[in-house]
Amino acid sequence: MTEHAEAPHDRPDAGLSAIISERRRLTGLAYRLLGSLADAEDVVQETYARWYALSPARQEAIASPGAWLSKVASRICLDVLGSARARRERYVGEWIPEPVPEAGHWISGRPGAAPPDPADRVTLDESVSMAFLVVLESMTPAERVALVLHDVFRYPFAEIAEITGRTPAACRELASSARRRIRASGPPATPAARRATVVRGFRQAMEAGDVDALIGLLDPAAVLTADGGGVVKTALRPLEGGELIAHRCVEIARRVPGVTLLERTVNGQPGLIAQQHGRTVTVYAFDIADDRITRIWAIRNPNKLRPWTAL
């Protein structure tokens, strides 16, 4: 975050360089903090607007444009998180983070950061998983920012303190509190290969209308949460219990013909999408423990399915 003057020939176009090299990483940062790709894109646009509002001399005085952009984006996200809670209280039905396709381009790490510490609690794929994002929703904005910036993007607490307006010690405690919430949310994620096998079994059982097979794949205490946003019809409250979920899934499949289930990577984890007439109408994300499905998130709000329209 240090700023100092540099000779113009050292960085001929700092603004252009920042846009080319930082946009995807900033989008990944804002998405993890907000759980909404649309909101993340808005944050990045506002961040660049503030960059270009600086005079050329002011831009040249910033030693690390990437660090400056990250700091500004994080502060904007804090403001957005403060208002998002009120907006989501007015949301029709359950609010689920916006699902994203293949997670490989959700770049992690601050500019110039050291390699990940083996002790880091959150891996790259875990940091965009639906289960992780849902737990983030239960945190305060400050906890969320402290955890994501430190454990995922490897920012030191001194820099996080600049962003949040708190002390480094307070930020360290916020991150610790956030980790306790994650640990309390359930066991570690099942390896991807085993998750894929379970999800494939779920798809096959759904296609066959095999209630017993679905019951065998679902944890007895499984929960299915759907998000239609008041735009499309869906359950407004979570369904609880593996047997109830199995019967409801088969009932819906029989009532809505012409739906094709496809296996896709959803937020870095094996998932499914449902397509009707070539259009993605539902994205399914799963949480799995001991080879059984414990949580299903069914995102049906078409406003959250924009990244899936071409898949």
Score class of each variant (00 low, 15 high):
Asp10Gly: 08
Arg11Val: 13
Pro12Leu: 11
Pro12Thr: 10
Asp13Gln: 10
Asp13Pro: 09
Asp13Phe: 10
Leu16Lys: 06
Ser17Pro: 01
Ser17Met: 11
Ile19Arg: 12
Ile20Cys: 04
Ser21Met: 10
Ser21Cys: 08
Glu22Lys: 07
Arg23Phe: 10
Arg25Pro: 00
Leu26Ile: 11
Thr27Pro: 01
Gly28Lys: 01
Leu29Glu: 00
Leu29Asp: 01
Ala30Gly: 10
Tyr31Cys: 07
Arg32His: 06
Arg32Leu: 07
Leu33Gly: 14
Leu33Ala: 13
Gly35Gln: 00
Gly35Ala: 06
Gly35Ile: 07
Gly35Val: 08
Ser36Thr: 04
Leu37Val: 09
Leu37Lys: 05
Ala38Pro: 04
Ala38Met: 08
Asp39Thr: 10
Glu41Cys: 06
Glu41Leu: 11
Glu41Val: 06
Val43Lys: 02
Val43Cys: 01
Gln45Glu: 08
Tyr48Gly: 02
Arg50Phe: 07
Tyr52Lys: 07
Tyr52Gly: 14
Tyr52Asp: 14
Leu54Asn: 12
Leu54Lys: 15
Leu54Glu: 11
Ser55Pro: 15
Ser55Glu: 13
Ser55Gly: 13
Pro56Thr: 00
Ala57Glu: 15
Arg58Cys: 07
Arg58Ile: 09
Arg58Met: 12
Gln59Ser: 13
Glu60Phe: 11
Ala61Gly: 12
Ala63Tyr: 12
Pro65Asp: 04
Pro65Tyr: 11
Gly66Val: 05
Ala67Ser: 13
Ala67Gly: 14
Trp68His: 13
Ser70Cys: 11
Ser70Met: 15
Ala73Trp: 01
Arg75Ser: 11
Ile76Leu: 15
Cys77Leu: 05
Leu78Lys: 09
Asp79Lys: 10
Val80Met: 02
Leu81Phe: 08
Gly82Gln: 13
Ser83Trp: 06
Ala84Leu: 15
Ala84Tyr: 08
Ala84Glu: 15
Arg85Cys: 07
Arg85Glu: 15
Ala86Asn: 10
Ala86Phe: 09
Arg88Gln: 15
Glu89Thr: 11
Glu89Tyr: 05
Arg90Phe: 07
Tyr91Ala: 11
Val92Ser: 09
Gly93Val: 04
Ile96His: 00
Pro97Ala: 00
Pro97Lys: 00
Glu98Leu: 05
Val100Leu: 13
Pro101Ser: 15
Glu102Ser: 09
His105Leu: 13
His105Glu: 11
His105Cys: 04
Trp106Ser: 01
Ile107Trp: 06
Ile107Glu: 11
Ile107Cys: 03
Arg110Gly: 05
Arg110Cys: 04
Pro111Asn: 12
Ala113Arg: 09
Ala113Phe: 11
Pro115Ala: 03
Pro115Lys: 03
Pro116Trp: 06
Pro118Gln: 06
Pro118Lys: 04
Ala119Lys: 09
Asp120Asn: 09
Asp120Trp: 04
Asp120Arg: 12
Arg121Val: 02
Val122Cys: 03
Val122Thr: 10
Val122His: 04
Leu124Lys: 12
Glu126Lys: 10
Ser127Lys: 08
Val128Ala: 06
Ser129Gly: 01
Leu133Val: 03
Leu133Ser: 05
Val134Gly: 00
Leu136Ile: 03
Glu137Tyr: 03
Glu137Asp: 14
Ser138Thr: 14
Ser138Gln: 13
Met139Asn: 07
Met139Cys: 08
Thr140Gln: 12
Thr140Val: 08
Pro141Tyr: 02
Arg144His: 04
Arg144Thr: 01
Arg144Gly: 00
Val145His: 03
Ala146Met: 06
Ala146Lys: 00
Leu147Arg: 03
Leu147Thr: 01
Leu149Gly: 03
Leu149Tyr: 00
His150Pro: 01
His150Ser: 10
Asp151Phe: 09
